[in-house]
Amino acid sequence: MHIAEGFLPPAQAAAWTAAAAPFVVHGVHSLTRAVRADPEAKLLLGASGAFCFVLSALKIPSVTGSSSHPTGVGLGAVLFRPPVMAALGTVTLLFQALLLAHGGLTTLGANVFSMAVVGPWVGYAAYRSVRALASRLPEQTSLGAGVFAAAFAASLSTYTVTSLQLALAFPDAAGGVAGAFVKFATVFSITQIPLSVVEGLVTVVIVRLLSTVGREQLLRLGVLRGGTAAGAVDGPGADASDETAGPHEPTSGPTSEPTSDGEAKA
């Protein structure tokens, strides 16, 4: 849910930009450090950013019949960690504003705060807690539950923060900020709550498929337990653990079918 250009009063737009700035600066710092440590990371970060953009440009069906765009921030936070996601998310939102007219330039700060700061952190916190709680369960189950929680919580928190931003900008005549929050949250809940559930389900499918076909990348990113738990761009060390972690998962089977479904050059 992107706040359109000109929707927020200038002072509030500036305040949200200031609130998002430290997170984005931290994200850019960790991105720069990652690129300096491993030059190969630059291209992978480029690929990750493009992936985030395309993911958020997909149309997913909502229960009410309308279709809407997923945020993709939950998956992004699990795959790339919230600090990197703050930087990648900001770039994605800038591109969305200039290439797709989703969101604005003066409202970029507010959108970054909800979609590249709060969403990823809440999603990541949900993911870590579910993974910790479900640590006794088989990896596929715990991963699926964690990823669903991440995508659902990230999408829902993004929507809540956006409603709050709108409520602070336009308090209700009688009910104040709380009343306005209820209004905006209700108006947008028609699309956003079913969307969060669908996004959670789609994200589970993505990660389940990736844990078979993209195992190497997930280990490298530290999403699967076989890999080292270090950052998004941990180099050759993570690759070495690939062999030791191999046999837990089937490398082919019914779950890999839909990927061949998606083959373009069939």
Binding site: V54, I60, G214, Q217, P258, G262
Partner: peptide, 18 residues
């Protein structure tokens, strides 16, 4: 099917991007 296909699309996209 839609959920399944979108998930497969996302996964294929990730693997191919990398």
């Amino acid at each position: 099917n839609r959920v399944r296909s979108l998930g497969a699309l996302g996964a294929a996209l990730f693997v191919r991007s990398y």
